[in-house]
Design a protein around this nucleic acid. Sequence first.
DNA 1: AACCAGGGAAGAT
DNA 2: ATCTTCCATGGT
Length: 289
Amino acid sequence: MWKEYYHAPGMYDFDYSLRRLSMDPLIRINSKERWVDVPVRLENDKVVVRVKAEGTTEKPVFSVMSDHDENQDVIFEHIRNIFQWDKDLDEVHQFFQQSELSMLFHQYQGTPIVRDFNLYDSLMKVIIHQQLNMKFAFTLSTRFVQKYGEEVDGSWFYPEPETVAKLNYEDLRELQFSQRKAEYVIDTSKKIVDGDLDLQEISKLPTEDVMKRLGKVRGIGPWTVENWLLFALGRDDLFPAADIGIQNALKKWWQMDKKPSKDDVEKKAEEWTPYRSYAALTLWRSIED
DNA sequence: AACCAGGGAAGAT
DNA sequence: ATCTTCCATGGT
């Protein structure tokens, strides 16, 4: 058993992150005690790591705890990466002070990008969530993981690509996947297993190249790549302009009676470069109440 | 009951 | 290249 503490350089609203993570029933969280259990894959092991808030948004301190004594440094690095504790969110806040979103950023200070726990898991989740309302989307991803994934110490690990690649479309249709969605999930997993799609390698490419490369895969369009770039890789400058949630948020703040077009949204978002991801997150957050 | 949902492929211009 | 239609399924 070990425990390690870490201080973030700027504001960091961990409690908000927990609220956001709690939308996913697969993630084990205790908002009152302010911790989340993160499933971590090691070479030959699956371990669960508890990440807990010990400070405040203004003076953020976190603890990372695990009873798995090997690879402590690797695990800690991984967690620090997922939560992006090194990112100075005060700089982001500063940037948006001269923008149209200054009020929102004042209201929602220290909103971090918390990355999904694994590149492949994230891609599967984003594909499954395409075009579905959030409630049913999480119902589907939960069924998928609880049927084909693995539970370790009360936390769920997504299935391995090898497991999914072997499934028949009917296996997922039983879980109420549409035929298309079943094809996208299984066929993409097959490509990964066959070595035709290397997410680790793609994750190192510049954003535009990731768009081109991943966008070629059947079932993966612009929205899916953008979300993967934002949530799996945690990149700073993504703005899913076609996303319904973003459009609804802007409709509200601009007091329009119709949702703004993708083009209008994209144009406005240029002002928020190079931190468009934080604009997107804060806009989502602003309509999550 | 109709319309929507944190889309995307396939077909038609 | 860009626009339109169809795909599916639960939620409100």
